[in-house]
């Protein structure tokens, strides 16, 4: 079971690296913010697997924080804090 989880984590971290290509290539700002969201989701998945692999339930809290702040980052991307645009 743990062996399978390790393999899955390894696959996910490699996919994370492939997702970085989208950040590198772009071409628009929206593509890049979406690839942050993708990286965030992948990181959450890796954290969930790691919490099983190394038996550290606290990593679930870290995953929870990433889920919440992913939304905050999306809001920060579309909103202009200064107003007036």
């Amino acid at each position: 079971m743990t062996g399978l989880a390790v393999l899955a984590a390894l696959a996910l971290v490699i996919f994370f690296g492939l997702g970085l290509l989208r950040i590198h290539l772009g071409p628009t700002d929206a593509d890049r913010i979406l690839s942050i969201q993708l990286s965030g989701t992948t990181t959450v998945a890796i954290l969930l697997l790691l919490s099983v692999i190394v038996d550290m339930p606290a990593l679930l809290y870290v995953a929870l924080i990433f889920v919440l702040f992913a939304a905050v980052i999306a809001i920060a991307f579309v909103r202009n804090p200064k107003g007036g645009a």
Partner: peptide
Amino acid sequence: LMLALSWARLDAPDLALAEAAIGAG
């Protein structure tokens, strides 16, 4: 995101939490 993962691998969940909330978030 990656730094938080590396803190998790270094057995430092407190730092992973801080990195997630303050550094990346």
